[in-house]
Computed example of a mutant assay.
Amino acid sequence: MAVSPRSSRLLAPLSGRRIFVVEDEYFLADDISRTFRALGADVAGPVGDLEDALRILHDGSILDAAVLDVNIRNEMIFPIARELKARNVHFMFTTGFDRITISPEFQDVPLLEKPIDLPAMAHRLAALIAEPQS
């Protein structure tokens, strides 16, 4: 039985997508990556510091979306977020902090508070990718 592209997208909603993961909590980063891969994604990273994040951001590869921890080793992720926004790459934030820590320029970016429901996050990211960029 052939699988239609639509049903394939339901079974693996991130299939064929390259998702950038920036998270400094090792086990959470690993869990996010495993979840995304199980849903068909190619994962860029995960990386746990801004220097490595910038390296991936500038390696010339295509990124379809990103999940960014707001606070990476006591540094705010906003320089990475600004560049993703300039490139029209969908992204969402994760944090253990309040939304008030988010720069006003990113108030429209989805924010998931830790602890995170990983399958729900992956499906929300897939829906975000499906939205047209403004």
Rank of each mutant, 00 (worst) to 15 (best):
L125K: 05
L84I: 14
I129A: 00
P119C: 05
F91N: 02
L118C: 10
E131V: 02
I100Q: 10
T94Q: 09
D98L: 12
M121K: 04
F93S: 08
A130S: 14
Q107T: 07
A86Q: 13
F97T: 02
M121F: 06
F93A: 08
G96M: 11
D98C: 08
H123R: 14
M76N: 03
L111M: 04
D108T: 08
I129G: 02
P110A: 04
V89Y: 00
V109I: 15
P115H: 11
H123T: 12
F91R: 01
I80N: 04
E75Q: 15
R99E: 13
F106T: 13
I102S: 04
F78Q: 05
I77L: 11
I116F: 04
A130E: 13
I102F: 02
K114T: 10
P110G: 03
Q107K: 08
M92H: 05
A126G: 00
L125M: 08
L84R: 14
K85G: 11
R87D: 06
P79W: 00
I77P: 14
I77A: 10
I100F: 06
M121Y: 09
D117S: 05
I100Y: 03
A127Q: 12
N88T: 02
L125S: 08
M92L: 15
T95C: 05
E105R: 06
A81K: 11
H123D: 07
F106L: 04
A126S: 10
D98P: 07
N88Y: 03
Q107F: 03
F97L: 10
A127D: 15
A120F: 05
R87W: 01
H90K: 13
T94M: 14
R82L: 12
M76K: 08
V109H: 01
L128W: 05
Q107A: 13
L84F: 13
L125T: 12
L128S: 12
A122E: 06
I116W: 04
P115F: 10
L125A: 07
F97R: 07
M76R: 07
L128Y: 10
S103N: 15
N88L: 02
A126L: 01
R99C: 03
F93E: 09
H90Y: 04
T95L: 10
A122W: 06
D117L: 03
I102Y: 06
P115Y: 14
D108G: 04
T95K: 06
S103H: 15
P110Y: 08
